[in-house]
Nucleic acid binder design. Structure first.
Lengths: 201, 201
DNA sequence: GGCCGGTGATGACAGATGTCATGGCAGCGT
DNA sequence: ACGCTGCCATGACATCTGTCATCACCGGCC
C-alpha cells in the first residue's frame, strides 16, 4: 500500500484528487493539507511514501515545501502536481529534489501511474514541459532585477517600488530597464508577463 | 439518479471530480468535455440533469456556454464550478441562467449537496461572493473602455493598441484614462488588475 | 426639439518611463 | 593584486503616459 499526502489550496480539487486516488487498490491518501506551510508537519506526522504538492499555495509554495520535505523526511518522495506548466517551475522543482512533475491537464488515468513510478524511485516529467524548460533556460535575471520586477507586478509606479525596496528611483529604473532588455520586452508590463510565464518570478 | 455533465479544461481535475461525484449513490457522470464549445453538443447528446461548468475554458467560456445550454436544453440545470471568485463572474453567470455558483475552494463534501440542490431547482451561491458581488457592482466601464483595457492586458503601448483597434492614439489614451479613473487606479496596469479581479474584462 | 451618454478626435502639458553614460563599492575567482 | 560581475546611485534625455479642455457625430429618451 502506497501512502499519500495531498497538498492543494483548492479544497474541492484536493478532495476530488483524494477520491480519484483512493479508487486505486494500492493507493491510500493518509493526509490532506491546504497550505504550503502545513506540509512539513503533516509529512512528519504521517510519514507518507509520496507527497503530491501543488506549486501555488498560500503560506509557502510547493517548491520550497519540496526542499523542506526532502531535507527532513528523505524517504518521502515528492510529486509536483500543478496548473501551470512554467518551465522555470519544473527546473526549480527538480533542483529542490522533486521526483516528478505533472501538469493538471494530463489525463486522470495517468496520475496513479505517475504516483507509482515516483514511489519506485523513477522520475516522471511532462515531456513537452521538459523541452520548453530547455528552451527557456534558467532565469537571466539577477536577484535584484527579479525582486524589482516582482514588485512591479501590481502596476506600481517607479516611486512606489523605490520606497518599498528602499532604493532610489533611478536604481529601480535601471533594474527595470535591464529586466526589460533581458526578457526581450519593450514595456515593464510585458516583461512581467514573459518573466511570469517562464517561472522566473 | 441525477445525470451529470462535467466541463473543465484540466483533465486531471475533471477526472478527479468525476471520481468524487461517482462515489455518491444518486449521482452519475454521463459525459465529460474539456472545452467550452464542446458543451452544447454533449448536452444535447446525453441530456444531463445538471451540467457542471468551469468558467475558464478554451473555445468558449463557461458563461457563454451556460447561456447556450439554457437556450437549447432548458431542462438541464447549470452549476458553475470555478477557480476564481470574481464578483462579475457570479453576476454574469446568473444573468446567463446558471442555477448555482461554487468556488473551487469549497469543501469537497459540499459539492454533491450543491448538485442536488441545483437539481431540485434551488439556487446555490457562495455567500461571501454574493456580498462581494453587491459591493463591486456592475462594470462601470463602457464597451469601448472595456475593449481598450482588454487590449492593454499584454503590456502593449498606446500606439500598438491604437493600431490593433483602428483608433487614434489620443482616443486610446482617453479611454484608458477613463478606465483608470473608474477603477480607482492610477496606472494602466493597476486598472487592468482591478478590472480583472472584478470580472469586468 | 433638446438633452445626454457613448464614441472619436485633436492639441497641449506635466509627469512618469525607458535608455544611456558614468562612477563607486563589495565580493569572488584566477 | 587584478579583473570581473553584480549592486547602487546620479544626471540627462527622448519618449511615452495620463489628464484636461474642446469639438463633433450619433442614438436614444423625455
Amino acid at each position: 500500500m502506497i501512502r499519500l499526502l495531498l497538498a492543494d489550496d483548492q479544497a474541492l480539487v484536493r478532495g476530488a484528487l483524494a477520491a480519484l486516488l483512493n479508487l486505486e487498490p494500492d493507493l491510500e491518501v493518509v493526509a490532506e493539507v491546504g497550505a504550503g506551510d502545513e506540509v512539513l508537519a503533516a509529512v512528519l506526522e504521517h510519514r507518507p511514501d509520496v507527497a503530491l504538492l501543488d506549486v501555488e499555495m498560500p503560506g509557502m509554495d510547493g517548491i520550497a515545501a519540496t526542499a523542506l520535505v526532502r531535507a527532513k523526511s528523505p524517504r518521502t518522495r515528492v510529486l509536483i502536481v500543478t496548473t501551470f506548466g512554467r518551465p522555470g517551475f519544473l527546473r526549480r522543482a527538480l533542483q529542490a529534489g522533486a521526483h516528478g512533475f505533472v501538469v493538471k491537464d494530463t489525463p486522470a488515468a495517468e496520475l496513479a501511474d505517475a504516483v507509482r513510478k515516483v514511489h519506485q524511485g523513477l522520475r516522471v516529467v511532462d515531456a513537452q514541459l521538459a523541452t520548453d524548460s530547455l528552451v527557456a533556460g534558467e532565469s537571466p535575471l539577477t536577484p535584484r532585477e527579479t525582486e524589482v520586477l516582482r514588485a512591479a507586478r501590481d502596476g506600481s509606479t517607479v516611486a512606489t517600488i523605490a520606497k518599498r525596496l528602499f532604493l532610489s528611483e533611478g536604481t529601480v529604473r535601471n533594474h527595470l530597464s535591464a529586466a526589460i532588455g533581458k526578457t526581450g520586452a519593450t514595456t515593464r508590463a510585458e516583461a512581467v508577463i514573459t518573466a511570469e510565464g517562464n517561472g522566473w518570478l
